[in-house]
Each structure stands twice: as C-alpha cells, then as structure tokens.
Simulated assay, not measured.
Amino acid sequence: MNSIYKFLSLFVIITLFISCSGEPKEVKQTAVQEEHHDENIIELSAEQYKTADIQLGAAEMKALSGTTKVNGMLDLPPQNMVSISSPFAGTVKSTEMLQGMRVRKGQLIAVLQHPDFIEIQQDYLDYKSQLEYLKLEYDRQQELAAEQVNSKKALQKARSEYQSMQAKVSGMRMKLNLMNVNLSALDKGKISSTFNLYTPISGYVIQVNTNIGALANPSDVLFKIADTDHLHAELTVFEKDVPKLKIGQKVRFTLANETKERMATVYLVGREISDERTVQIHCHLDQEDDQLLPGMYLQALVESGSSKVTALPEKSIVEFEGLKYIFVEAEASHFERVAIRTGVTEFGYTQVYFQDNFDWKSKKIVVNGAYDLLSKMSNGEEEGGHAH
C-alpha cells in the first residue's frame, strides 16, 4: 500500500509541475503576438533606402480638370535669330565657326576675298579724288559768278558735276561699309584684298553652310546664329479649344526628352486659322534656360483657371489587389502604406482623395521608390511574416 501511495503522490506532483510550467508559455506566446508590427508598416535599412532611391514630397494643388492638352515646339522671335550672307560675291578665305559655338555681337565669323573687291576700293579712291577736283572747280565758278565773269551755264555745269560725283562717293562709302571696310585706312590709300563678316547678335551658331574655298553669293545663307536666351513656346491649338484660352493663363509643359515640368504664360493668341483648323499660341517661358534649343518639341497643358484639386505624381501611387495606395514617412526609415482613391490623371499627375481623418498636408509622401516599397512589403507577406 505504501508503494501505491508513493506512486500516486509522484504522479500528482509531476502533473502539477507540467500544468504550472505551461502557463508562462501561453503568456509568452501572447506577448509575442502583441509585439507583431502593423502589416502596413515597412522599415528600410540605409542601404535599401539608397538602392530604392527614395524621394519624399508632398501632395500639391493642381488644375487637372478644365485644362487643354496641346502640342508645340520651342521657337525664337525673329529678332533673336539672324541669317548671315555676304553682301557681295566672294570666296571664303577663313572661318572657324562650328555648330554649337557661342559667339558675341561683333565677333569676326568669316573672311572673304574677291578681285572685284579690290576694284571697288580703287573706284572709291578715284571718285574721291575726282570729287576733290570738282569741289575746287565748283568753288572757282561760284567766285567767278559773283564777279560776273563767267556764264550762268558754266556754274550750273560745275555744280551738277560736283553733286553727281558727291552722290557716287557717298554710295561707294555705303557699299564699302556693308563690306566692313576700314574707311579711315582706305582714305589713306591702304587697299585690302579681303573683307570680313561679323555677327550682329550674340548667341549660338546653329548652322554652318560654307567652308574654306567655297564661293559665297549674296543669296547664300552662310551662317545662322540664334540668341536662345529668350526662347518662347509656340503651341498649336485646335479651333474648338481657342475660346478656352486667354492671355495670362499658365501653361505646364514638358519636352520630349525630359520628365521635368516647366512653366510658361500665354502672351499672344493667334488671329489666323490654318488649313488644319489650328491656331498658334505664343507663350513666354517663366524661367529662361540657355540649354534649350529652338525646334524642341513639347507637350503642354493650358490651365483654364478652374478650381484646383489635390494631386500627386503618378509614380507615387501604387496598386495592390485592386486598391490604390501611397507610402508616407511614419518615422525615420519607416513607411506606412495608406489607401487612397484616385480621380483624373493628366500630364504626369493624378487627382487623389484621402480618408477624412488623414492629415495629408503634414505628411511626407514617397514620390519616388513607391513600387520598391510595395515589392518589399509584398515579398514579406508572401513569406508569412511581416516586413521590418
């Protein structure tokens, strides 16, 4: 009987020990469950943050509704582009111009030569010498006329010959000025065998249509130079959209090779409708950029001045299981996934609707790298855990 009692006592003790030792495990398990992170929170290491190229921004107010989509190109006003030709036929003796070179007003761009150029200078000096003689003769005839020694006809002839030669010399001086001849040196008898071409404006060389040894005629455009400091946006608008446009409206545009958004302002609305039923709209850039070139194509939205909406860049919005989300910075290196609804999308921006209790104005929103965050979060959920 003592053996049976001892066995039962030992069995009760073991049972109690097992029961007591199980309670902490349940508490510990509950504690672990309580330590689970929110499934909408993801943490990145410094390396992951850099690799994903995370960039933060904020929601903006954009006029996405009531805008007019148009195409166009960058252009220059006529006074900012010059075509340079030779005023006289000649052979290009030298030039250092290349496309893309920056030139300043008055800079030498080419030297030309032609035998006729020498002859023109010789004619000028000859006419100038004759003018001096005819001036003396005219003065002499005036003195004789005052003393009533000569005839009135002799005085008129002297005056006519003098004035005729005066006109010839004046015309020759103007012609030589067009050829950029140093008249001071020429008046001293120094004849040059070449004449120079200079640029009348500062800017960039956009065309070179000649070379050393080439014959240049007055009808040939040798160089084109553009002052790109004052480019404008020339928009092509369909006839039906013209009533929506007014001077002073803002224009948002991007170039074909850029994602950067630029701004312009409607300055002039064309008054002629083309055969394609379009009208040209002239816009001034809000910020000049000397890296831009005339002829670059652009896409633009002309804001009609209607009420603006809350919007985010398209790439800041991600989709998962049929719902739209954004990521906001919860704390350093921690990002929270937030559900949103979207509206109209135009020109790289999408209208967004936040939950009523979401203070979006105070939040830093991921505007680049959102898809990397979604991918990392999705991978963590598929593995049955939570992304940390």
Results as ranks from 00 to 15, higher is better:
F358P: 04
E336F: 02
L268N: 12
M73F: 09
A58D: 03
S86V: 08
K69L: 11
A370M: 04
L215R: 10
R341C: 03
Y267K: 15
K128Q: 14
R104M: 08
A300G: 06
Q121L: 10
A332F: 10
E34S: 09
E43K: 08
K188S: 12
S3N: 09
S164P: 00
G384E: 08
E331S: 15
V318T: 15
R277F: 07
A387N: 09
N368M: 12
A214S: 14
I120F: 11
N211L: 03
S3T: 03
V366R: 07
V237T: 04
D241H: 06
L197C: 03
G100K: 05
K364F: 08
D275Y: 03
R252T: 12
E234V: 04
N180F: 01
F11Y: 12
F7R: 14
P115K: 02
V318F: 03
S219C: 01
T68F: 09
E43S: 12
L74Y: 02
T350F: 00
L255D: 02
N211G: 11
E321T: 11
V103I: 15
F358V: 09
T265P: 07
Q287K: 15
Q130M: 14
Q107W: 01
R102S: 13
K188P: 00
S9H: 08
Y297S: 14
T350M: 01
M377W: 14
L131P: 04
K105L: 04
N196E: 13
E161M: 13
Q141D: 05
T67I: 13
D220R: 00
R252N: 13
V237E: 03
R337M: 15
E382P: 00
T194G: 02
L144W: 04
V242L: 01
Y127A: 15
R102Q: 09
Y138N: 10
R271M: 03
S164V: 05
E39L: 08
Y349H: 12
I84W: 03
E346H: 13
L255H: 04
H37I: 12
S193L: 01
E60A: 11
L125R: 03
A110W: 05
L285C: 05
S219E: 15
K105W: 01
V338W: 00
L134R: 13
S160H: 10
K28L: 13
A158G: 05
V70A: 13
A330L: 12
T265H: 05
Y49Q: 14
E119I: 13
L373S: 11
Q130Y: 11
S94T: 14
K240D: 13
V352W: 03
Y133R: 08
F354W: 10
S184V: 13
V366Y: 07
R104A: 10
Q48N: 07
L144G: 06
Q280K: 15
V205T: 09
L268W: 03
Y127W: 02
K157D: 13
V266M: 12
V12R: 06
E239T: 01
A332P: 02
S94M: 07
L98M: 14
L98D: 14
Y162Q: 05
L231F: 04
R337C: 06
V27G: 00
V269I: 15
F320D: 15
K105C: 01
F117G: 06
M377A: 14
Q207L: 14
Q291I: 00
I42F: 02
P218C: 10
Y162V: 02
S86W: 01
I13G: 03
Q107L: 01
P243K: 10
A59M: 07
S45T: 15
S21T: 11
K28D: 10
H230C: 02
E288Q: 12
